[in-house]
Amino acid sequence: MFTGGGPIYQQLADHIAEDIMAGTYSEESSVPSTNEYAVFYQISPITATKSVNLLVEQGVLYKKRGIGMFVATGARDRLHKLRRSEFRKEYVAPLVHEARLLEINRRQLAEMIDQENKK
C-alpha cells in the first residue's frame, strides 16, 4: 500500500491524520494500536511507532497508559493549521503551473473551481 512518495512513516502519519480530519476517528476516541497498523498495512512495527510518535509530538494523539492511543481534543484544528501551510505548495503551485502550460486563464480556472464546488 505504501510505495513511493516519501518515507513510509510519513505516509502512515498522513493517512491517520486524514482519517481524523474526515471524522473517521473523533476526538477522544481511540485509534488502532501500532501493532494493528503494522499488521494491517504490512509495515515494520518500528515504522508504525514512528508515525504514531510523530502525531503525538504534534499534539494530535496522546497515550493512555495501558489502554492505547487516543485522538486529542482540538486535534482537527491543529491538523487543519498544519496542513493549510502545505496546501499552497503541494496543491496550488502545481495547479497554477499546469494551468499556465494549458493556457487556462485565471477566470477559467475560477469557473472550474466553482463547478467542482457544486458537485
Partner: peptide, 15 residues
C-alpha cells in the same frame, strides 16, 4: 501475503 501477516502479527506478540 500470509507470511507477511503472520510475521508482523507474531512479532507484535513477541518482538
Amino acid at each position: 501475503a500470509l507470511f507477511h501477516r503472520m510475521l508482523l502479527h507474531d512479532y507484535g506478540q513477541h518482538p
